[in-house]
Amino acid sequence: MNRRWWLPLILALLFLLSILLPHFGILNLYLQQVLMYVGINIILTISLNLVNGYMGEFSVGHAGFMAIGAYISSLLTVWVFPKSWGPFVFPLVLILGGLGAALAGLIVAFPSFKTRGDYLAIVTLAFNMIIKSVLENIEAIGGPRGFMGMSKLTNVAWVYVWVLITIFAIRNFVFSAYGRGILSIREDEVAAELVSVNTRQTKILAFVISSFFAGIAGGLFAHVLQFINPRSFTILKSTDVLVMVYLGGIGSIMGSILGASIYTILLELLRPLGVWRWVVGPLLLVILMVTRPRGIMGLREARWLLPAEEVQADAAVTS
């Protein structure tokens, strides 16, 4: 009956590979690093897609939330917990970082969603700058020099698990009744209210969830690099995430997975070009946007991510 029996199997197999390949040295450290960045970027992209793609708002300060998650989790592993506890408390630490980011998201969302339209872009832009300045001016956590001393707690398997959690959570949220309310806000906010969607509350919730996962990504990032500084989380980082969202296509989780993977790997492949990769990469992007303005997936979703009833509905139409 269940036509998706293979899906958990593949996911479990990939999980095994994510442990075994690095363990037996089949993947060298460099490739592992790239894979981890791909995963972290997937988390960032899917979470931003929730706000910018599914909900149709325009948030441009995702790196700010990432910074909060990165700093909170790093402070916890370096100052609060003994080093030997590291691997055991790591999930907890990440979640605390995510919750910190979510709280910041709530504070940003609360006033922003009283108004409509472009205000969110301005507020999130300002937020991103404020976070960076605040971090630069707290001498206790390194100020502009940054913060270090974290163990390398992030590995391919952990990133993989968090990517799965992100996909699972946001996919189920989007296809829930509540999540349908998010789509209705994107389509027509007035009409959304007229089908009894509490638009303000829905927007705030989506924004908080999005911020939470940005915080998780920040925590993972900090424990790959083992060094963070405020300059890692500027508006440039936010722009990278925006690019990955629109490259992959709005309103599509598969799109975000593709967008994040392609963009991250592409910039890695272009590394030999030195500074010129910042010309070639964006240029490719311009070409893609001209030829395919809705991104790679463009509002469509991969079949394996759709709920079973929708797949059946599709089948009914085509038959």
């Binding site: 789509l183 209705s184 389509e187 027509d188 007035v190 009409a191 007229l194 509002l299």
Partner: peptide, 8 residues
């Protein structure tokens, strides 16, 4: 203006 959800 009907206010339908156009992409759904």
């Amino acid at each position: 203006g009907r206010g339908i959800f156009g992409t759904l």
